[in-house]
């Protein structure tokens, strides 16, 4: 597992994403927690309306990379970032950019479902309310819950606490909540790791369905899941992006030895 990565490793890229398909382009990104370097010169282009999976052993920096994309890492005082992330022509780490506005466009779903201790309805309406949504809130809530494939189950529980739902329902509520602010990108950090297989299955289907409206970046520990849901896969090790490419390529024909070892379960 503690295979070291050579200092000058160049990311192996199969079938690189064309410039015009890119929505988010991570450009030579390095990140430190105090002295500890968690990301080493990572460059990754994320195509629009596709699902990109981040895989790699525990502690390799997947969450860190994901949280850099919507600047959630700003909330950790010890973080220092170098490099750039391009998003729709703008540069997310530029001094003129407001991190709060970034998060509105790049939403996030967390590992453990974390609904607010409010009603189902209020959970979904939270984001739109924040941003002064002027339209019909009932419609938006319904649309988001339908989008997260939860409407049928909760339509007559809208005024009950979100905490009263099952784990899988809670996670879909969190997805609906993220969708309600109408972001372009949804980041998902191991969204099914706290769920049972059936709930996991529903969420995986959901990810498939929402990609026509959203660009999804998902961190997962589960190889099969990466295989099932993603279009492209990026493999990281010890803060370095080792290899990236179309998911079927990565899984059937990995170019780098470390990727092959990881996928075939030889470490991690």
């Amino acid at each position: 597992m503690s295979q070291t990565v050579p200092e000058n490793h160049v990311t192996v890229r199969t079938d690189p994403v064309a410039q015009e398909d890119a929505l988010v382009a991570i450009d030579h990104l390095s990140l430190w927690y105090d002295q500890f370097q968690a990301l080493r010169d990572v460059s990754l282009t994320v195509p629009k309306n596709q699902v990109t999976a981040l895989i790699g052993a525990s502690g390799c920096g997947k969450s860190t990379l994901l949280r850099s994309i919507n600047r959630m890492n700003d909330l950790v005082p010890s973080v220092r970032v170098e490099g750039k992330i391009h998003y729709e022509g703008a540069e997310l780490y530029d001094a003129s950019v407001d991190a709060v506005e970034v998060r509105r466009r790049i939403g996030m779903v967390f590992q453990k479902p974390n609904p607010f201790p409010k009603t189902v309805y209020e959970n979904v309406a939270f984001g739109p309310r924040l941003h002064g949504y002027k339209g019909n809130m009932d419609e938006l809530v319904e649309k988001s819950l339908k989008g997260a494939a939860l409407w049928d189950e909760v339509q007559d529980k809208l005024n009950q606490s979100g905490l009263g739902l099952s784990g899988g329902q809670q996670q879909r509520l969190c997805i609906a909540r993220a969708m309600a602010t109408e972001p372009d990108v949804i980041l998902m950090d191991e969204p099914t790791s706290a769920l049972d297989p059936i709930a996991t299955d529903r969420i995986e289907q959901l990810i498939h369905e929402i990609k026509k409206d959203f660009t999804v970046i998902i961190v997962t520990h589960n190889m099969q899941q990466a295989g099932r849901v993603s279009d492209r896969t990026a493999f990281m090790h010890l803060g370095v992006l080792i290899e990236e490419g179309p998911t079927d390529q990565i899984f059937t024909n990995p170019q780098h030895e470390m990727t092959e070892n990881y996928i075939s379960g030889r470490f991690g």
Binding site: G89, A90, E91, L92, D94, S96, V97, D98, E101, V102
Partner: peptide, 20 residues
């Protein structure tokens, strides 16, 4: 080429003075 600030303004993720 637009400056980073202009680019951010173009998609509305710039810092606003009032919020600041």
């Amino acid at each position: 080429q637009p400056t980073p600030k202009q680019a951010a303004e173009a998609i509305g993720i710039n810092k606003s003075i009032s919020r600041n």
